[in-house]
Design a protein around this nucleic acid. Structure first.
Length: 105
DNA sequence: CGCGCGGCCTAGC
DNA sequence: AGCTAGGCCGCGC
């Protein structure tokens, strides 16, 4: 709890509806620009009861997580759509529109 | 205690 | 524009 993971969870918990963040972005916020992968691990290990919007965390291309995460990428896609996220023709999130800009806080 | 693998990223071809 | 090759850090075996 104490450490990287907790901090990751705090950040993720603050991602507003209709916005998404990238692993690298979160890692950067923690002052560890090279720990993007650990963020991914943290998501996997994320306890359910925290109700983290881990579906709002994607890679830099705006792609869905692999099927083994949410069951299928369609599920994640659906959740995001219901929050107002829009997708491009190639099936990726329109990052330009929905990428969470922390500086706006 | 050591090695390998990730919900990744960046740089190069 | 799409693929390969490293790199980085923490966890599991």
């Amino acid at each position: 709890m104490n450490g990287f993971f907790s901090r990751v969870y705090e950040i993720v918990a603050r991602i507003p509806e209709g916005k998404v963040a990238t692993y690298g972005q979160i890692a950067l916020l923690l002052g560890e620009p090279r720990s993007a992968r650990i963020v991914g691990w943290a998501m996997r290990a994320a306890p359910e009861h925290l109700n983290l919007p881990c579906h709002r965390v994607v890679n830099k291309l705006g792609e869905m997580s692999p099927d083994y995460v949410f069951g299928s990428s369609e599920i994640q896609k659906t959740m995001l759509i219901s929050e107002g996220i829009t997708f491009k023709a190639n099936g990726c999130i329109d990052m330009k529109k929905h990428l969470w800009n922390v500086l706006k806080l």
